[in-house]
Amino acid sequence: MFRSAPAAAVRRALVPLLLCCALLAGATGCGGDDGDSATPSGTSSADRQKFAKTRFVTNAGLAAGATYRWIVKPYRDGRFKSGAEGRRFALVKAGLAGAFTYNRLRAALRNAQGDPTLAKAVAPLTAGVEALKDLPSKLRKGDSTEAVVGSFDDTINSVKDAGRSAGAEVTDQVPSAGQLAKG
Rank of each mutant, 00 (worst) to 15 (best):
G95A: 15
G163Q: 03
A13G: 10
N59S: 14
G32A: 14
Q49P: 00
P16M: 01
A60I: 04
G163F: 05
V10T: 12
T155E: 14
E146V: 11
V92A: 12
D154T: 15
A181I: 10
R106M: 10
D77R: 10
Y68R: 15
L24F: 12
A52V: 02
A27T: 09
T67C: 14
G163C: 04
T117G: 06
E130L: 12
R69I: 04
L135T: 08
L125T: 04
G26C: 08
R106I: 08
A147D: 13
V159G: 02
S44F: 02
R12I: 09
L109N: 02
D134E: 11
A147Y: 08
A38I: 10
F100H: 08
V15A: 07
G163W: 02
G114C: 03
L118F: 07
D36K: 12
V10C: 07
D115T: 05
K160F: 01
T155I: 03
S82R: 08
T54Q: 10
R88L: 14
K120T: 12
K50R: 15
K81W: 00
G95W: 05
A60T: 09
E146S: 15
G178A: 15
G61F: 09
S144K: 14
T117M: 02
A94Q: 06
A8H: 03
K182I: 08
K138C: 01
V10M: 09
D33F: 15
V159D: 05
T43I: 12
A119I: 00
D115F: 00
L14R: 10
V129K: 06
A90I: 08
S176E: 05
K53N: 05
K182C: 01
A90Q: 09
G65C: 04
T54R: 10
A84R: 02
A97G: 03
G178I: 07
N111E: 13
F89L: 14
E130D: 14
T171I: 07
D154Y: 09
W70H: 15
A162S: 08
Y75L: 03
R140W: 04
L19Y: 02
T43E: 13
I156P: 01
G86E: 09
C20M: 13
K138F: 04
T117W: 00
A119K: 13
R11S: 07
R106P: 01
G42M: 04
S41M: 11
L139T: 06
A52H: 02
Q49F: 01
F56W: 06
D154E: 13
A168G: 06
E146N: 13
Y75K: 05
D161P: 02
F80E: 03
E85F: 12
S4R: 14
P40T: 07
T171C: 00
L96V: 04
A107P: 00
